[in-house]
Amino acid sequence: MTTPEKTALITGASRGLGAALAEALAPTHHIIAVARTTGALEELDDRVRARGGAATLAPMDIGVEPAMQQLVASVAGRWGGLDLWVHAAIHAAPLGPAAHLDEKDWQKSLDTNVTATRRLIGLVEPLLLAREGRAVFFDDPRGGQKFFGHYGTTKAAQMALVRSWQAETVKTGPRVLVLEPAPMPTATRARFFPGEDRAPLTSPQDEATRLLPELLA
C-alpha cells in the first residue's frame, strides 16, 4: 500500500515564521499555503520549489468562512487529511490606549484572531484526525501590557480557546501544541516596536529550524 503524501497546512504562510516553517517543511511535506497576499505566496512557492518541495497556494482571508470551507473540502478530496496544521495568521492592529481603540481594528482583531481560529479548529479537526495529525499555535503573551489592547486581548482569547482544545483532545487527538517563539525581526514586531535594534533578534529561518523538531516529534 502506498504511503500517503504528507501534508502541512500553513495559515499565515506569506511571511515571517509561517513562511519560514513552510520552507523548512518543504522537503518532507506538501505545503498548503494560505495568506491574503498573492505575490508573497508566489515568492514562497519559488523558495519551496528551490528546496525540492511543492506547494498549493490558497490566496484567501481566513476570516471568510465560505473560502475556508471550500479549502477544507478541497484538502479532504485531494489528500483525505492533514498531517500538520501550523496557524501563524494574526491581525496586529496598531497600538493605542484602551480608552481610544479604533472600532474597525477591534472588530478585525476579533474576527481574525478569535472567530476565524474557532471556525478553523472545527473545520480542520476532522482532517487532522484522519491522519493522526497535529495542530501548532504560537503564543505571544501581551495581554495586560499597556497599549496592546487590540492585539493583547484577542491573542489571549485565542490562546484560551486553543488551550481548551488542547485539554479536550489529550486522549482523543488531534495533538495540539502551543509554542512561544523567540523575538524575531518581523513586520508585525516592527509595527509594535519602531526603532528597535533588530540585530539581537532571531531570524524567522533560524527560529523555524529550532522549532521544527517540536513540530515533528
Rank of each mutant, 00 (worst) to 15 (best):
K104L: 13
A92L: 12
F138D: 10
F147T: 15
M68A: 14
A67L: 13
E5Y: 08
Q166G: 07
E42P: 10
P66R: 00
A33T: 04
R163A: 06
A190E: 03
M60Y: 11
I62V: 13
L129G: 02
T202L: 12
A24K: 11
A88Q: 06
A40K: 15
Q158Y: 00
G144C: 09
E103W: 12
D111Q: 15
I62N: 03
R210T: 06
K6S: 10
K6D: 03
R210N: 08
A20H: 09
D46F: 05
T11V: 14
S203P: 11
D111N: 14
P185N: 10
P126Y: 02
T153P: 02
L177S: 04
D139S: 12
T188A: 13
A40G: 03
R51E: 15
L161V: 03
A199T: 14
L127T: 04
P204H: 04
T112Y: 05
T169C: 10
L129S: 08
R210L: 05
G53H: 08
G63W: 01
A13M: 07
Q166Y: 02
A156P: 01
R163I: 04
R131P: 07
V64I: 14
I62T: 07
T117R: 01
E103Y: 10
R36V: 14
A73D: 09
A67W: 01
I32S: 04
L21Q: 10
T28W: 15
L120W: 01
G80M: 07
P97K: 04
G12N: 04
L177Q: 07
L95S: 06
R51P: 12
M60N: 05
F193V: 13
G16F: 06
E180F: 00
A8W: 11
F193P: 05
T172A: 11
D105E: 12
L127H: 08
L129Q: 15
P183Q: 06
W79R: 11
A40S: 15
Q107Y: 11
F138A: 12
K6I: 01
V72R: 01
Y151H: 12
A182I: 03
A92C: 11
I32H: 13
I90P: 02
T202F: 04
E214W: 13
V48P: 14
A160D: 02
A135E: 00
A20Q: 09
R189I: 00
P194T: 04
Q166F: 03
Q205C: 00
R163S: 08
P174H: 07
R36D: 03
S109V: 09
E65F: 14
E43M: 13
E23S: 09
P4S: 03
L120Q: 13
L101W: 05
K146E: 06
Q205V: 09
R131V: 04
D139F: 00
